[in-house]
């Protein structure tokens, strides 16, 4: 399946892009997508424990299943206001 990844703030800068596209085996979970991303972009590893995640705009966990066409957002610690 194909997953669209959106990266924000520190995550975007560490990857050097606001978007990435992943090809994952069927049955993959959010954590699998992150592991693959870290292999391609090792600079993400340091940030991983602090990331919140969202599938199609809804907060998600590493154990949540992904489906073809999902948009996975990597959300570093927030600092609005």
């Amino acid at each position: 399946m194909r997953i669209e990844v959106r990266l924000f703030a520190q995550a975007r800068e560490r990857v050097g892009s606001a978007n990435a596209r992943l090809e994952l085996p069927d049955g993959s979970r959010v954590a699998d997508a992150l592991t693959l991303l870290e292999q391609v972009y090792p600079a993400l590893a340091e940030l991983r424990p602090h990331l919140a995640l969202a599938i199609d705009g809804t907060l998600a966990r590493g154990s949540d299943a992904l489906a073809d066409g999902n948009e996975l957002s990597l959300l570093p610690p927030v600092s609005g206001g």
């Binding site: 924000f8 703030a9 520190q10 957002s73 959300l75 570093p76 927030v78 600092s79 609005g80 206001g81």
Partner: peptide, 14 residues
């Protein structure tokens, strides 16, 4: 609202 905004809203400041 401001206290919650700082914890719950995906906005980042550089």
């Amino acid at each position: 609202i401001m206290d919650e905004l700082k914890r719950r809203v995906p906005i980042w400041k550089k």
